[in-house]
Structure formats: structure tokens, C-alpha cells
Design a protein around this nucleic acid. Structure first.
Length: 396
RNA sequence: GGGCGGAUUGCAGAGUGGCCAAAUGCAUCAGACUGUAAAUCUGACGUCUCCGACUUCGGUGGUUCGAAUCCACCUCCUCCCA
């Protein structure tokens, strides 16, 4: 079989690996069980998780078996990596609910059936039952505080203060890998590059304790060309759940991506063949828009299905191209004045903001710029805010 | 446990009795220019019944004609000592 490492490398996933040659050989020879961890901190996956899911799918398609590790136990501790503040702890019920949401979304990409079906495990199953003394003697001995303190993932927190609870996160994640290695013959952990030290901790633990090879590989973090995490907007994350981020909004997020990020995203997030991608991004001018449209369409199709993707695309074309079906918004404003409608539709957060926006010439009604803050809106009117927000108003 | 310092509008960070809705930078939003991009320039950026009024500067009380600024207590945090 084709070696999945080649695919991952060619698409730019791989950031760091250990024992790269051995791992390459292994992946070419047998079906490898691997895992990636997900923190159940929200009731929906977001774009940050997306890339890892795609990577998992590449792996699964190549015949390897994915384990999705839900960090139900570690979420009770909170990963201090890169965080400035300590994370809130969560109850068991919330976590269970989040897990069920995750699974629904993941099953769109990852297959939970067949010979190399993915499995979901929750590390709360073992972490909550640990005996402190045993854990310290079995696992704790293999960790050096000196080394841990040197790890980059604690750096920011050492300045602000790091609780012992959080300091243990690395041990727990390492222990997870050991458990999966013993229970499922899982030999490889994948994760974002920010997880490097945690992942390494697990692989090293297995090598030391079981004297057997275990591998680690991290992926490039999906960041914008400005160095920020991809998938964050002012309103928060871009979610995969359509009730949190509508297919249209999702489509628009990718449609508006920076030129510099387009190729990277196509490679990392879609399954379009590399030569096709190269063709799309060949010209660095307005033809770039074709690539962005493809990106937005492909991703929306992956996440929400073809039907929703077609709809989002035609709505987008209508909104920016002229006539046709606009995305609709059902509102119950206090009155039919433009200000009330803008607020009710969630386009502005306060009357004052709406007023200012109009005074600055940022609002159009049915393609006509308006300046009167008392302008009335009728059923079916199309409201534009700036260049990018176009909504057909439907009164409930 | 002891000592120092701190908590300001999304973030960072000024402000130490009236000139403070509170400097500045970042982020954001709009306008111009464009390719639904970037860069640049302009404007906005607490709330409202918006040329005026109202509510904000960790919390609660107090001093004062007047407090983000002074005092007391409380909560949380950094740092130093143990």
C-alpha cells in the first residue's frame, strides 16, 4: 500500500516525528493503531479539531486504525499548554454530553465500521480509578522534574503560576498512551504541534517502561499567515455544528480567507488532489478567488453535506454577484425600523451601534445605501451591512 | 504563615481628588481603494429617547461640594521570604 507518511508530508501535515525512519517503515508494512486526543471542552468540534480529523481520515484510508481518545479525565485537570489561565473543571455529565456530540460530528469523516473501524475511548475510565501511590511508583518515577520544567509547554505558565494539578497533566497524558499501547496495541500518537512535549512524554514512557517502540508525530498547527489560530473570529470559534455556525457562515469563513493561506488550507483540509490544488492557486491575482471558492465549497461539503454546500454557494454567489436567493434571517424586531431590525437580526449588538453604522454609510436596504436611521424595513427586504453581510429579512 | 505589589472599558496598558466615558497600542466594525484577499488612508469603537442624559474603573461601606483616584473591610492574583 502507499505509505500514508508520503501523503501527509506532501500535504504539509508533518511537523515533528520521532524515529522517523522506523515509523515510516512500520506504516508501510502493517495496519497501525494510532490515537489522537480530544478535550471535551465544548459541545461541538471546531475548526481547530478539523485538521486532525482530516489527518485521521488520511490514516484510516491508508488502512490504519484510529482511536479517538476523549480527555474526560484530563479535562478535569485542564491542559496548561499555552494557556494563560487555569481552565474550568467540568462535571462528568457535561463531558458525556460533549462526547456524544463529538461522535456525531466525527462520524462524517471517520468510519466507525469495517476492518479498521475507529474506536472512541475516554481516559476518565482509567484515570479516575487510579491509586495515587501506585501511580506515583509506576509512572511518576519515570518522569524528571528537571526535564519537565524545561519543556516549552509550561513556559508561559511558569511566569503566571502553575498548579501542581496541572503540572501532572503531562504524566496523565503519558499514561494514556501507555494504557492504549497495552490495551489496544496502539503504537502512535498524533497531535498538534503544541502537544509535542506531552506526546513525547507518552512515547518515552512506553519505551522506558515496556522496552518497546512507540512513536509520536505532530502536525503543523493550522494558523493564519498572521500567526493566529485558524478558525477564530470575533464571535468565537468557527464550529462544525450548524446550529452554532451556519453552513453559510462556515462557507463564508473559508471564502474570505487570506490569499497566503489558501494553498495551505486546500492541502490540509480538503482531499482534492495535489495537482488540482496547484492549478487552482497558480495565479496570484483575482483568479485566486476560484481557489477560495473551491476551498469553501469542499469544506462545507465535508462538514455539512453536498446539499448544504450547494445552497451556501448559491447564496454566496447571489449575495455578492447580484440577484438570487439570499440567506434568510427570521426576526422578531420591536418595530420595523431599520435599527430594530439590525439589532434583532444580530447584525448589531446595540441600537447605538446600529445608528452609527447607518450614519457612517455602512448599511444598504435592497442595494440602496440608506442614511435615515428611521428607515422602515418590509418583509423580504434585503439588508446589507458592509460588503460581506447580506440578509433577507423575514418577519416571524 | 510573613512581606511587597496589583485588580481600569475585548486584550495590553496610561490615569493617583474635578479638565475622565477615561491616553496610547492591538483587535474589531464601517468608508475609500480592491479580487468577498492583503496593504494603505479615513472614521467609529459603554448604554440610551444620541448635539443631551445615564451607568462604568474587583466587591461593600466611608471621607468629600465632587472619587477610577483618599480611607476601612472583603475577594482574587503576581512576586519575595518560609
Amino acid at each position: 500500500m502507499a505509505n500514508v507518511m508520503d501523503t501527509l508530508r506532501a500535504r504539509g501535515f508533518v511537523k515533528q516525528t520521532v524515529y522517523e525512519e522506523d515509523l515510516y517503515k512500520l506504516l508501510g508494512e502493517e495496519s497501525v493503531t494510532f490515537y489522537t486526543g480530544y478535550d471535551p471542552t465544548a459541545d461541538s468540534l471546531h475548526v481547530g479539531h478539523f485538521m486532525q480529523l482530516i489527518a485521521m481520515k488520511h490514516m484510516q484510508d491508508a488502512g490504519h486504525r484510529p482511536i479517538i481518545l476523549i480527555g474526560g479525565g484530563t479535562a478535569m485537570v485542564g491542559d496548561p499548554t499555552g494557556k494563560t489561565d487555569m481552565r474550568k473543571m467540568m462535571t462528568r455529565e457535561t463531558i458525556d454530553y460533549h462526547v456524544s456530540c463529538f461522535k456525531k460530528q466525527m462520524s462524517k469523516f471517520i468510519s466507525f465500521e469495517g476492518p479498521n473501524a475507529a474506536i472512541i475511548v475516554n481516559n476518565a475510565d482509567w484515570l479516575t480509578k487510579l491509586n495515587y501511590m501506585d501511580f506515583m511508583r509506576d509512572i511518576g518515577v519515570h518522569f524528571s522534574v528537571n526535564e519537565m520544567l524545561r519543556a516549552k509547554c509550561f513556559e508561559t505558565r511558569l511566569e503566571k503560576g502553575l498548579s501542581f494539578l496541572e503540572f501532572n497533566y503531562m504524566l496523565m497524558q503519558g499514561y494514556d498512551f501507555l494504557r492504549l499501547f497495552n490495551d489496544y496495541n496502539c503504537k502512535l500518537e498524533l497531535g498538534g504541534d503544541d502537544q509535542w512535549s506531552n506526546i513525547l512524554a507518552g512515547a518515552n514512557l512506553i519505551r522506558v517502561k515496556e522496552k518497546k517502540p512507540a512513536y509520536a508525530m505532530t502536525f503543523t498547527l493550522l494558523t493564519t499567515s498572521e500567526g493566529k489560530k485558524m478558525g477564530k473570529t470575533e464571535k468565537g470559534a468557527v464550529w462544525l455544528d450548524e446550529s452554532k455556525t451556519s453552513p453559510y457562515e462556515f462557507y463564508q469563513y473559508w471564502r474570505n480567507i487570506a490569499d497566503a493561506d489558501t494553498e495551505k488550507c486546500l492541502k490540509l483540509l480538503t482531499f482534492l488532489p495535489l495537482d488540482e490544488i496547484a492549478e487552482l492557486v497558480k495565479y496570484n491575482d483575482e483568479r485566486m478567488n476560484r481557489a477560495k471558492e473551491a476551498l469553501a465549497y469542499e469544506l462545507t461539503k465535508l462538514v455539512h453535506g453536498k446539499e448544504k454546500a450547494d445552497e451556501a454557494q448559491s447564496q454566496a454567489r447571489a449575495a455578492f454577484g447580484g440577484s438570487g436567493d439570499m440567506p434568510e434571517k427570521h426576526v422578531k424586531p420591536e418595530s420595523n425600523s431599520i435599527i430594530s431590525v439590525l439589532v434583532a437580526a444580530g447584525i448589531c449588538t446595540s441600537n447605538g451601534e446600529a445608528r452609527r453604522l447607518i450614519q457612517q454609510g455602512g448599511v444598504s436596504l435592497n442595494d440602496k445605501k440608506i442614511t435615515d436611521i428611521n428607515e422602515a424595513v418590509n418583509y423580504g427586504d434585503v439588508v446589507h451591512k458592509g460588503k460581506k453581510i447580506h440578509v433577507k429579512i423575514i418577519f416571524d
